[in-house]
């Protein structure tokens, strides 16, 4: 579904990514892991079009998407969340999700200003779908809260909800468990598995919490200093000597 081919990205003199290739099979829960500074977030930003790669290409459903604007990539059904939250803080929880419905609806300035019947119908549908999403992620009760007032854990969940509203086929999650406690992380894991199973959404996540990664992912790619050092099933990765060596210098062991 997603093919990363020979991606290289240089910042100044630093090779943040060096000839990295991997694929995300359809319907999988794939994970991209590695010690701090391995280039994971850079890879996420390249896939979602935040900046272009220096070399290599990204293909999504067989089409090359590297070089497209982030908005164009999002419209093709690839949505993402952010490690450093990017919610619309002054808007309500429901409104945040409604913004996610933007590309799935059509009402323009004039029609909306006049509140034409077509707009009402579309608003009603958007509202229902957004409320459904909020119900499925457990935020229905907080729909009228300002997003900035939510606790961190719920803000992360809301970002996922907003991404779901765009009806993606591939969802990129950038450190969704960062800052969450053990219980919240477990709930998050269950939710990701559910999204994958019930809605058929392919997931690519970058995550530090190895427990979570090993539990929910079906395929793992490991980066270290911008290079791919391993990829495979969780059980293989756990035994891979290169991975263990890479993590030994890090305070976080792989399992």
């Amino acid at each position: 579904m997603l093919d990363i081919r020979n991606i290289t990205k240089v910042f100044g003199g630093l090779r943040a990514l060096d000839d990295v290739s991997f694929s995300v099979p359809a319907q999988s829960v794939s994970a991209l892991i590695g010690p701090n500074g391995a280039g994971k977030t850079t890879m996420m930003n390249i896939i979602s079009g935040m900046f272009p790669p220096d070399e290599g290409s990204v293909s999504f459903n067989q089409d090359v998407i590297s070089g497209l604007a982030p908005a164009a990539i999002a419209r093709r059904g690839l949505s993402r969340t952010f490690q450093h939250l990017e919610l619309f803080g002054e808007m309500t929880v429901l409104e945040n999700v409604l913004v996610g419905r933007y590309i799935k609806s059509r009402s323009g300035f004039v029609a909306s200003g006049l509140r034409l019947p077509s707009v009402r119908a579309e608003e009603k549908e958007n509202r229902e779908r957004s409320l459904d999403i909020l119900a499925s992620i457990g935020l229905a009760e907080k729909r009228e809260e300002r997003a900035a007032n939510l606790p961190l854990g719920e803000q992360r969940i809301l970002e996922i909800g907003r991404a779901l509203a765009t009806e993606p086929t591939l969802l990129l999650l950038d450190e969704p468990a960062a800052g969450l406690n053990i219980r919240e992380t477990r709930d998050l894991g269950e939710m990701i598995v559910r999204l994958n199973a019930d809605r058929g959404i392919t997931i690519l996540l970058v995550e530090h919490d190895m427990d979570l990664v090993m539990r929910i992912s079906t395929a793992i790619t490991v980066l270290n200093f911008g290079q791919k050092i391993a990829s495979g099933k969780p059980s293989d990765i756990q035994r891979n000597p290169d991975v263990i060596a890479a993590y030994l210098g890090d305070e976080e062991p792989p399992c």
Binding site: A74, F82, V99
Partner: peptide
């Protein structure tokens, strides 16, 4: 209004 909040998120939402 979203644009006022975060342009990065807006582009990721396809706006």
């Amino acid at each position: 209004r979203a644009l006022h909040g975060s342009e990065t998120a807006c582009s990721a939402m396809g706006l």
